[in-house]
Nucleic acid binder design. Structure first.
Lengths: 239, 239
DNA sequence: CGCACGGTTGAAACGAATCAACAGGAGTGG
DNA sequence: CCACTCCTGTTGATTCGTTTCAACCGTGCG
């Protein structure tokens, strides 16, 4: 819990400060703190009054929206460099809960500091804009999957997207910290459905899994599966 | 197709310029134009290279995302004052197609002008931020509906939300310019399913419909329907 | 007048949810 | 150290909801 050296942050290029001048960063750095949470911890809860936003430095976080239903929906997965909880600068309660899927390290960015940045650093607002835009894009994509694809396709699409997004190390092994239930909460499916699909694909050698990591062996297989839903779309371009 | 008097625009309080000083508005006003489109017209198409953004002055527009599938997904409905196509200022192709559901009037906001505004008017970026934030919120809500609710509930939720969003005139009649097919494209359902639900509700006197307008007679009925899915959630707050 | 299109309805097929049971591993307490 | 429980993943059988296929109606339009 001590002030950061944000100027030399190893993920600064990814993070919010990456888009702000080094001198600009320095004056704010001392007001931020790094915090760690174990897997399963709640960083903040939907509906709570925000006192800070967070940059994710290490680990993976799910943003969960609870809504009326007994089923909750994961609306986004965050990886290194992602920003969360920034809705606070609009005097708005947190719109989702942020829950660690792995042990995580986050930067704690107090709201008053962010408010000052917003007025003093024009680039800051620009940076936020870019983030919000990308977030919107991701959620829209999720909505499309949920609205137009069936179970198998959703799982396939997820795995392929996730491979892009998550940092797959040396030999295509990527982190896969979601339980079957959670994957279901992301894709609008029940545990059993997810389990069946994955179990079958594992048998068929389409991917392998080891201690919360996963590797696609036949990504083309999944591509094809998605392409099948597409064939009419490529031929006739209307609907 | 002649320059606007944006300063005295009757919807300025809603629109993008509402958050910018009157003097600021004037210097940009002469570069904007009003354009009309008939129902069914495409204002812009997903994937195209943007040359402008648009403010919707009158009418209703759907934002449609085409994705791989043969089914397309409506990701948002726009009403008076809403902004669309602003992703252009990031050198990004349009992410959805914008299609008029009714005859519409829009303001044409050329990209070069918006670029200048972005650098010269700090409040402009702020204004965008607010809009992006609200859009994200809406799409997240859509994703939750798609992921967690079944057909009937989705339709009910839509009608209730739409009543909030659309301007219901004197006696609760609201515009309802969507075909059953389109409502299906919004809610991830097929025409027949939507039709069945609505037809039944109409028989049961839950709402009435007249020439693209609709009035809820028993909104409480729909509320209850949504609440049923909720009961476990209010009792036990986890899942 | 005939045709196309949007909405409606029925019957059958299909996909996913639900219910139920079990296996394996982690953690606990005797 | 073993017995027990709890939790996650798996699998099967059944039920339920939605899609699909098909037919029909009414309306607007060429």
């Amino acid at each position: 819990m001590e002030p950061n050296d944000c100027r030399n942050c190893e993920i600064r290029s990814l993070a919010l400060f990456g888009e702000i001048s080094s001198e600009g960063v320095d004056q704010f750095a001392e007001q931020t703190y790094q915090v760690q949470y174990p897997a399963g911890a709640t960083i903040y809860e939907q509906g709570d009054k925000p006192e800070a936003a967070f940059t994710l430095r290490e680990g993976i976080i799910k943003l969960v929206r609870n809504s009326g239903t007994d089923r909750s929906q994961i609306v986004r997965l965050l990886v290194k460099g992602d920003l969360m909880g920034i809705e606070g600068i609009f005097e708005e309660p947190y719109r989702q809960s942020a829950i660690a899927l792995t042990p995580v390290r986050v930067c704690y960015l107090p709201l008053p500091m962010l408010d000052r940045m917003r007025t003093e650093e024009p680039r800051f607002t620009e940076a936020l804009l870019g983030r919000w835009r990308r977030a919107l894009n991701e959620v829209e994509e999720l909505a499309v999957e949920l609205g137009t694809r069936k179970a198998e396709e959703r799982v396939a699409a997820f795995l392929l997207h996730w491979q892009e997004k998550a940092e797959h190390d040396d030999d295509n092994w990527m982190p896969f910290p979601l339980s079957r239930t959670e994957l279901g909460q992301m894709l609008g499916l029940r545990v059993e459905t997810v389990s069946r699909v994955l179990a079958r694909w594992k048998r068929e050698g389409i991917f392998e899994e080891r201690s919360s990591r996963l590797r696609l062996l036949e990504p083309d297989c999944l591509d094809q599966l998605l392409a099948q839903g597409t064939e009419t779309a490529t031929a006739a371009h209307r609907e």
